[in-house]
Amino acid sequence: MIDFHGVSKVYGNGVKGLDDVSLTIEQGEFVAIIGLSGAGKSTLLRSINRMHSITAGRLTVNGLDVSGLKGKALRKFRRGIGMIFQSFNLVSRTTVIKNVLSAKVPDMPFLRVLFGIYNKKEKIAALEALDKVGILDKAYIRADQLSGGQQQRVALARTLAQEPQIILADEPVAALDPVTAKQVMDDFRRINRDMRISVLINIHHVELALEYADRIIGIRAGKIVYDGPVQAVDEAMLDTIYEGKLPREVEKPA
């Protein structure tokens, strides 16, 4: 369970990233966070795994106060949270399996990290993760040889190999074409349903958000302006979230 209680984040230059945010996300939810660029979507997501720190309020994950975490405790906490990025953030010069295996590195002893020695159990786990996202056959190909969609799946497999309870995805399909984007969203849905992993996605595609998520969080200038089930999102609500700038042709699917 992720619990925001009056959370605010003010950047060094005085910009308010988050403004008195309170919300609770239960284990296993599929949440889409929508809003304009700069509204605070990334800040909200990244404050959960302390990639950004908050300046006021209380943020707990499974009862653990995130703000107080430091050093080893913070690293241990992050082991339970997977993260997916817009630009995949893979080590492009190495093979797909090495990328997935990197999820095991934080738990490995120093010497094995230094020499890059992975044991059989870790390799099997990595290959199984690749199999779950359907690209097992690409395991020994260099990551930069793959298409964008395949690279995002490698990133997803890397996250799965980490065995997280929560996956935070920051614009995971923004760099992908519409067809590939849907395939990757299908992967997220499957992972959410089959493994009961909470999925929080920042997304610009309103139609994908409405199609895949169970719950929508609308954010505007750092404030939560909508938080509720996907069925209750209507045109007027989207206008509020996007400050009335959303083009008309984006309709809620029937």
């Binding site: 492009s92 010069r93 934080p106 990290v113």
Partner: peptide
Amino acid sequence: GAFEAMEAMGGTRFSSFWVAVAPQVLP
């Protein structure tokens, strides 16, 4: 990017460098 991903997974600064940055600068 890859360094950020390693840190988000709970890697130390050294292991993140070694896994994510070293392969990029090696050649």
